[in-house]
Amino acid sequence: MAEVSAEARIEAPAGKVWAQLTDFASYGQWNATHTSFPQGGPETLEAGATFAENMKLMGFPAEVNWTVEELEPERVFAIKGKGPMGVLVGNRYTLTPDGDATTVRIDGEFTGAAVSLMAGKLKDSATAALNESLRKLGGLVG
């Protein structure tokens, strides 16, 4: 298993950050690993909703089929998915209001046989992508 995380303070209220985070049409503007949603984002954002995402990680394209695991508006958005070669992926976005700003934390995990072969590189690449994503997200809403 490879676990990654990143955290940033964004100078915008949680509602504004949440609106950007869950605006699937603009994902490519801030999410560093996102390339497209082949069928669009989830039709209804709720626990149990599913959607497919094309991503690029460590230079390799991958399609992940996501399921929304947990959803608490303006607080938590957690998804789990299945990628190529039996890799399971999880992402959890946690928003913590801090006055007029919001602390955003992203926790990600990758499990599966293919992960153990490249866990170190995967951690470095994914951590860099999370940090870049938070920087871009902050730029859009700040």
Rank of each mutant, 00 (worst) to 15 (best):
S5W: 00
V87K: 05
V141W: 02
F77A: 13
Y93D: 07
L95A: 08
M55D: 14
G138Q: 05
D124G: 04
E70Q: 03
S26L: 05
T50C: 10
L134G: 08
G81A: 12
E43G: 05
L117E: 02
K123S: 10
E74R: 14
T50L: 05
A8Y: 02
M58L: 14
G83S: 09
V76W: 08
A113C: 08
V141L: 07
V115F: 03
T103W: 00
M55H: 08
G90M: 01
A6V: 13
T102H: 02
A6C: 12
L21Y: 07
V104L: 05
F37N: 08
A62C: 05
T102Q: 01
T102E: 00
A8K: 05
A113Y: 03
A126I: 12
N65E: 12
N91Y: 10
M85G: 06
L88M: 11
E109N: 04
R75N: 15
E7K: 14
G138S: 02
A47N: 09
L117R: 01
D98A: 13
V141K: 00
T67D: 03
G120V: 01
N91E: 07
L88N: 13
E70M: 08
Q29P: 12
T22S: 11
F60I: 06
R75C: 13
G120K: 04
T111E: 06
T50E: 08
G120I: 07
T44M: 09
L45T: 06
L134P: 05
G112S: 00
L45K: 08
E46K: 10
A47K: 01
L134V: 03
V64E: 12
G83R: 10
E70I: 11
T35A: 13
V115H: 01
A12S: 09
G15Y: 08
E7F: 12
G108A: 06
G83T: 05
D98W: 06
F60V: 07
L137A: 04
E11N: 08
G120W: 02
K56F: 11
E53Q: 12
N131P: 07
G139N: 00
T103C: 06
N91Q: 15
E74F: 14
S125C: 07
